[in-house]
Amino acid sequence: MGSTDRINGFNSAVALKAPVAACATAEIVLAGEQSIDGVSLVDGDRVLVTQQSNPVDNGIYVVTTSNWSRAKDFNGHRDAVKGTRVAITDGEIYAGYEAQLTTENPVQIGASELTFVLLLILDPNDADAVRTVAQNISSIQSASDNAALAQQAQEGAEAAAADAQTAKAGAVAAKEAAETAAASIDPALYRKTADQIETADIANSAVTTDKVEDGAITQNKIDPSVQLGGPSLGSNSIIRTNGTTIDEDITIPAGTNGMSAGPITIAAGRTVTVEGTWTVVGG
Rank of each mutant, 00 (worst) to 15 (best):
A143R: 15
S144C: 03
N146G: 08
A147K: 06
A147Y: 07
L149E: 08
Q151M: 03
Q152L: 12
E155P: 00
E155M: 09
E155S: 13
E155T: 11
E158T: 12
E158S: 15
A159C: 03
A164L: 07
A164N: 04
A164I: 04
T166M: 10
A169W: 01
A169Y: 01
A169L: 05
G170S: 06
G170W: 02
A171H: 01
V172H: 01
A173M: 03
K175Y: 08
K175S: 13
K175E: 10
A178Y: 04
E179Q: 10
A182F: 07
A183V: 02
A183R: 07
S184W: 00
D186Y: 01
P187H: 05
P187L: 11
A188M: 14
A188W: 10
A188G: 09
Y190S: 05
Y190M: 05
Y190F: 15
Y190G: 07
K192A: 15
T193A: 11
T193H: 04
T193E: 12
A194V: 08
D195H: 08
Q196G: 11
E198R: 12
E198N: 07
D201C: 02
D201A: 04
D201L: 05
I202R: 04
N204Y: 08
V207C: 05
V207L: 13
V207F: 07
T208L: 11
T208Q: 14
D210Q: 05
D210E: 10
K211I: 05
K211A: 11
G215F: 07
T218V: 12
N220M: 07
D223G: 03
D223Q: 10
V226A: 08
L228F: 02
S232Q: 14
I239K: 11
N242F: 05
G243S: 11
G243H: 12
G243K: 10
T244K: 15
T244M: 13
I246Y: 06
D247V: 08
D249H: 06
I250Q: 05
I252F: 07
P253Q: 02
P253Y: 00
G255W: 03
T256R: 04
T256F: 05
T256S: 13
N257D: 14
N257P: 00
M259Y: 09
M259T: 13
A261Y: 09
A261G: 14
A261Q: 11
P263G: 12
I264K: 13
A267N: 13
A267R: 01
A267K: 06
A267E: 14
A268K: 08
G269S: 14
G269Q: 11
G269I: 05
G269C: 04
R270T: 12
R270M: 15
T271D: 07
T273L: 11
T273P: 01
V274Y: 01
V274H: 00
G276K: 00
G276F: 03
T277Q: 10
T277C: 02
W278G: 00
W278M: 15
